[in-house]
Each structure stands twice: as structure tokens, then as C-alpha cells.
Design a binder for these strands. Structure first.
Lengths: 201, 201
DNA sequence: ATTCGAAAAGCTAACGGTTAGTGTTATGGT
DNA sequence: ACCATAACACTAACCGTTAGCTTTTCGAAT
């Protein structure tokens, strides 16, 4: 166990940040596809191999906060108030994420993503990863009553809600509409023996 | 309008098939990542550029029947019996597709896909395309009562059902379980003013 | 039958993301 | 002071994919 504030880790984080900042700046200035990896590395004054030791791919440069999103999703499940029903907790979290990504500052980045097929594909496969880790969290929930398959289904529906809301004209309202449907779906899955409506675990 | 049985189109189809067959054979023999595009082209005795004029990418070689799947999905909506409710029609179609892909002959191909991250990613983005064209079909449905967003949501949930069922230990039963949840979701969306249960359009 | 336009296939050469292999420096623990 | 290791660098390549251009093959109209 080393000290959490080692100089090494600070330098590494700084390098990583410098790469991400440089890349995003160049991408926004001249377009994602128009900027090559070699250019990004040169501009950030690091070697190409170093860049790839910090980021697994060119697309990953754009989705720097990937891991934060993933954590936020699973925490909405694992750290929710004791006894709080599942779906509303997820709905709140998706609301927060959508709000965070439709904030004013995020508009140019979002436009860039929409323009590039490569980035769109990457974003979707990223969401799939998030769905899988959310499913893991749901399966581990101590208050779980639903089947494993129902949990995996809920996880996918939840990230679908995010994706669909982002494309909708009114994202916030879209989240509510979709989550009304998810409540309907979860009511069937969670109340498998109950028969009554939407009182999930 | 030319005659449908032109020699040109036959030859083109034959070339396409030869490429796909050769590629699949090599992939199964030696592994997807271990076989390069140039090898496939050489073995099929065609030029690399010709290969890419028939298939948009290396991954597309594996999912040759892509377009068939897409058509099958949308037809389940557009050509269903008059007055037949939507969700059961979709359920039947997903059942058929799952059965088709869990047939005995498909096992090695499926294993190959599971092993390769690139193929998994491609398959998911393919499904997304299918969801979008299914959404288009749902929006154009003359008997539609649900909102556009609800249609798009149903489309995504439907392809989710396919993906989840494929990974489940008992795919056929999984389809039924997930579609019970989808019925619950659709009941909310379609009966927006009705109040009663699952009698969608 | 000949001719002509267009689609299909071919070749070469490159571009751009990514990785292997190898070496060098800086850092932290002992 | 010393060593293991993590971070970074450099070169050179690999591989999927595309551009540019030529050649072949077919379909149809004269």
C-alpha cells in the first residue's frame, strides 16, 4: 500500500489530463476525423505509445469521464436510501446524467459526437458496458426479489432510457415517459407473485 | 427495368457468396483475428478492393444475413394480421429469430462471435440499426395510438429482448419472460388514457 | 453484329489507428 | 545507496480501409 498522494500518480493523472484536453481542443477546432493520433501526441508533447497507455483508443479520448458515469449508475443502486424502491432511484440518476449532458457547455462536444459514426458506435458500446455493470449491481442487491434475467433486462432498459432521452426533443420529459413504461415492466417482474401494480423492491 | 435474372446480377451474387463462404471458413479454421483481409481475398481469388465493394467491413463478412434480419423485424409489424396486437407479433418474430440463431449449425459461428470483442461490438451496433428501422415501421403503423417516443422505446426494448435471450441459459423461456415485461411497459404507453391493462394497438 | 455506356473487378499505393519490441528515465520503498 | 517498477519514448511495423486509375464484362440500342 502506497500513500494515496504519491507524486507518481499525480504526474500520471496530469499527463492523462493534458492528453485529453489537447485532444478535445484539437477535435473541436478542426473536427474529430481530421485530427490524427500522431498530431494529438505531438501537440501534447508525448509519444504515441504513451497516449495509448493512457487511453485504449482514439474514441476513448472523447469519453474521458466514462468511468464516472459507470460508477454513478451503480451507486444509484448500491447507495440508495434503505428501503427506497429501485426504479425511482434509477430514474433520479438518469435524470441527473441527462441534465449533466445537456448542459450548455456540453453542446459542442455533443455535436461532434453526433457527426462522427465512429464516436456514436463507441458511445453505444460504452453504454452496453454500463448496462452490464448495472446488472451486476442489481443482481447483488440484498433486497432483490426479481429473477436474474429481470435484473439484466431492467439494466438494459435503464441505459436505453438514457440513450433515447438524449435524442428526444425534450430530454427531461422523455426520461419521465420512458420510466413510466419501465415501471410497468418492473411491476410485472418484481410482483411476480403479488398481482398488484408497481411496488417493486 | 432490366430482367431480374440477368447474368450480371447472378455473377455478382456468386462472387459475394464466394467471399462470404471463404471468409467464414478461414475464420472458423484459424480464428477471426488471426485471418487478415488480404488472406481472405487471396483465398477467394479476388482483389481486396472487390471484397470491400461487396462488404463494408471485415466484421460484415460474418453477419452476411444482416439485411434479412432487418426485413424480418419490420415485416413482423407491417405485415401482421389486420387487427393483431403489436407486442405478440413482435414476440413471435423474436422467438423465430432466436430459434434460428440457436440452431445446431450456428454454434461454432456464435462461439467465434463471443470470442471477438470486435464482432460483439459490431453485432450490437447492427442491432441498433435494426431497432431504428423497427422504430420507423412502428411510427408508420396506421393503427398507432402511442407517442413517437413510446414507439422508439418499444423498438429498443424488442431488440434488447433478442440480445438478452441470446445470452440467457434458456433462450426461449427468456424471450417469454422479457416480453411479459414489455407487455407491462406497452400497457402503460398504449393505454395512456384507458387506465386498463395490456390491450395495446 | 457492332458499338457503346456502365457496372464489376483489378492493381498499386497509400493513410490512419494500433501494437510489438526495446530502451531510458524517474520514483518509491528498503 | 540500491533496486524494482512504473511511466515514457522511439522505431518500425501490422492491419483494415480507401483513393485513383485501368481493364474486363455484361446489357442494350443501333
Amino acid at each position: 500500500m502506497t500513500v494515496p498522494t504519491g507524486r507518481r500518480e499525480r504526474k500520471k493523472a496530469a499527463t492523462r489530463q493534458k492528453i485529453a484536453d489537447t485532444a478535445l481542443r484539437l477535435f473541436l477546432e478542426r473536427g474529430y476525423e481530421a485530427v490524427g493520433i500522431r498530431e494529438v501526441a505531438a501537440e501534447a508533447d508525448i509519444a504515441v505509445t504513451t497516449l495509448f497507455s493512457h487511453f485504449a483508443s482514439k474514441e476513448a479520448l472523447v469519453f474521458e469521464q466514462d468511468a464516472d458515469f459507470e460508477r454513478a449508475l451503480t451507486r444509484a443502486v448500491t447507495e440508495r436510501a434503505p428501503g427506497e424502491p429501485l426504479v425511482p432511484a434509477l430514474r433520479r440518476e438518469i435524470h441527473a446524467l441527462v441534465r449533466h449532458c445537456t448542459a450548455e457547455g456540453a453542446a459542442p462536444v455533443q455535436h461532434m459526437i453526433d457527426e462522427s459514426p465512429a464516436l456514436r458506435r463507441y458511445e453505444e458500446s460504452m453504454r452496453l458496458r454500463h448496462a452490464e455493470s448495472l446488472a451486476t449491481a442489481l443482481l447483488a442487491d440484498p433486497a432483490r426479489t426479481a429473477t436474474p434475467l429481470a435484473c439484466r433486462t431492467l439494466a438494459r432498459f435503464t441505459v436505453d432510457a438514457y440513450a433515447l432521452a438524449r435524442e428526444a426533443p425534450e430530454p427531461e420529459a422523455a426520461v419521465d415517459e420512458i420510466f413510466r413504461m419501465i415501471e410497468g415492466a418492473w411491476g410485472v417482474a418484481a410482483g411476480a407473485g403479488t398481482g398488484s401494480g408497481a411496488t417493486g423492491s
